[in-house]
């Protein structure tokens, strides 16, 4: 048997989060999420957590496993010795048990205008892109909004107003798209935008989809710095 030590917080019952231990059967192919689902289905139906796809695509099941921000569907129990501690993502307000409040994150995402901004008439036909033009932003489009990068980021944990890795990488996904004509400078070049980042790099280490948000932020720092000194230049 593997022991899961799960953080429980039940508003109205617990004054603060407490740990509760559950025993789950040993299965080499069980991810942490499978263990949690076993608990939910067979041991304690009151345990709350988010999950959906079980294959690293939906970004719902991010939690803190033995202190590290992880997708629990891609983190296997067999890779751990002893007790496996599961907590909600650090840096976010906890709603219940392992469920965190994602509203502030969603506000940050929408603040960078994450869509193709065009001026003028609607296009009569589709926009063709070369493979190189696709490659320019494709990496940043792989984000699944799992928020592991925010949980790993010491700047975000210290300052919840920091725009954060995923939102800035998402802004770069559109900035670097040849079809986009938008300007996100006023949102990104702020103390709470790219200038809040001190390039710790933990966001990139934590990212399960290899988006490399730290690179996205450093690239926009250069863009914003050049534009600040030479306002007529568009990079």
């Amino acid at each position: 048997m593997t022991v899961l030590e799960v953080s429980r917080y039940r508003p109205g019952i617990d004054a603060e989060p407490v740990f509760q231990r559950y025993e789950v059967p040993d299965n080499d192919d069980w991810a942490v999420l499978d263990g949690l689902n076993y608990v939910k289905d067979s041991v304690d139906g009151t345990l709350s957590f988010r999950w959906s796809c079980r294959m690293g695509i939906c970004g719902s099941c991010g939690m803190t496993v033995n202190g590290e921000p992880r997708l629990t569907c891609g983190t296997f129990l067999a890779d751990y010795d002893g007790v496996v501690r599961v907590e909600p993502l650090h840096g976010f307000p906890v709603i219940r048990d392992l469920v965190v409040d994602i509203e502030p994150f969603l506000e940050k995402l929408s603040s960078v205008s994450p869509w193709l901004i065009r001026s003028g008439e609607d296009p009569a036909s589709e926009f063709a892109q070369t493979p190189a033009q696709l490659e320019a932003y494709k990496q940043y489009s792989m984000c699944i909004n799992c928020m592991l990068c925010y949980s790993a980021c010491p700047v975000y944990v210290l300052d919840p107003d920091f725009l954060g890795p995923a939102a800035i990488a998402l802004a770069q996904r559109y900035n670097l798209d040849s079809r986009d004509e938008g300007d996100r400078f006023d949102v990104l070049s702020t103390d709470e935008g790219v200038w809040g980042c001190t390039f710790v790099g933990e966001c990139t280490s934590a990212c399960p989809k290899h988006v490399d948000p730290a690179e996205a932020i450093q690239r926009y720092k250069l863009t914003a710095a050049v534009r600040s000194v030479l306002p007529w230049v568009r990079l």
Binding site: E107, S111, D186, S189, T190, E192, G193, W195, A225, S228
Partner: peptide, 20 residues
């Protein structure tokens, strides 16, 4: 996000000195 995020910042210039 708060409205203070919109104000101008000296950080780009300081970062260029840091980077250089």
């Amino acid at each position: 996000m708060t409205t203070k995020a919109k104000r101008r910042t000296p950080e780009p210039y300081l970062w260029l000195l840091f980077s250089g």
